[in-house]
């Protein structure tokens, strides 16, 4: 049977659903243990944040795709939440092994971490649904094409929806790939492409936290001298 772009996209969607079949859109018992081990239990904040971002995502999804599609947006969001909790658990297991600690209070109470991780999970879900346009040239060309209405949802759409700094999103990508070994080659390349776009342009916008860090680094005298923002 010849492989068509549509069939390839359908296969990717099916694979994603199978991989997430055994996961829940609620924190697993292992994750709940990590939450309880924190100096400040982040459970409530995490649940509240997911609910708020669910509303924002669904509304923006409906605006982009069509008002009748709000339910579809919620389904995509739920898949993203399943992946978010799955990857979070895997990341924490790796960190526990690496650092020999079980209290991740600072990390798990960091809003930028959670929003970035959820955004990355949703980017994987959204990009899976536009798989055919990824194969036709990735972010640069695929998202500019009018072959699918859902290409409007391509990266960096999710950053705008969640009001997220590209610099923070960038920080989760490598750990995300490490923590999710079942990630398909195309998706890994897509995330790598997102990295390049951030590195080449998005992280250098005027409001990027990168400039404060460069300034701080210069004041502390560590590392190389930073270039001024205009450069």
């Amino acid at each position: 049977v010849p492989q068509t772009p549509i069939r390839a996209a359908m296969n990717s969607i099916q694979q994603l659903r199978v991989e997430l079949n055994s996961t829940s859109d609620q924190p697993s018992s292992n994750l709940q243990v990590y939450f309880k081990n924190c100096t400040v239990d982040p459970s409530e904040e995490i649940t509240k944040r997911v609910e708020e971002l669910s509303q924002v995502f669904s509304q923006r999804f409906a605006q982009a795709v069509g008002q009748r599609c709000e339910g579809l947006g919620r389904k995509r969001f739920n898949l993203g939440v399943q992946l978010y909790y799955k990857v979070m658990e895997s990341m924490l297991k790796s960190e526990e092994k690496r650092l020999s600690v079980q209290n991740f209070s600072k990390l798990l109470n960091n809003a930028a971490f959670h929003t970035s991780l959820l955004a990355c999970a949703l980017e994987v879900v959204l990009a899976t649904y536009v798989g055919n346009s990824l194969k036709n040239g990735g972010f640069g060309r695929g998202c500019g094409a009018s072959d699918s209405i859902e290409t409007d949802l391509c990266f960096p759409w999710i950053l705008d929806v969640f009001q997220l700094h590209a610099f923070d999103f960038y920080k989760v990508i490598e750990s995300f790939i490490k923590a999710e070994p079942t990630l398909k080659h195309d998706m890994m390349k897509h995330l790598e492409h997102c990295e390049h776009v951030i590195m080449e342009s998005l992280a250098w916008r005027g409001d990027s936290p990168l400039f404060d860090l460069l300034k701080q680094s210069r004041e502390e005298g560590t590392g190389e001298q930073a270039e001024p923002p205009a450069t």
Partner: peptide, 21 residues
Amino acid sequence: NQDYHFGLKEHEGISELFDCD
């Protein structure tokens, strides 16, 4: 995921990237 260029060093992880202990 062998084609991906991993840049983090052994002593770095998500905790360090979000300024945590």
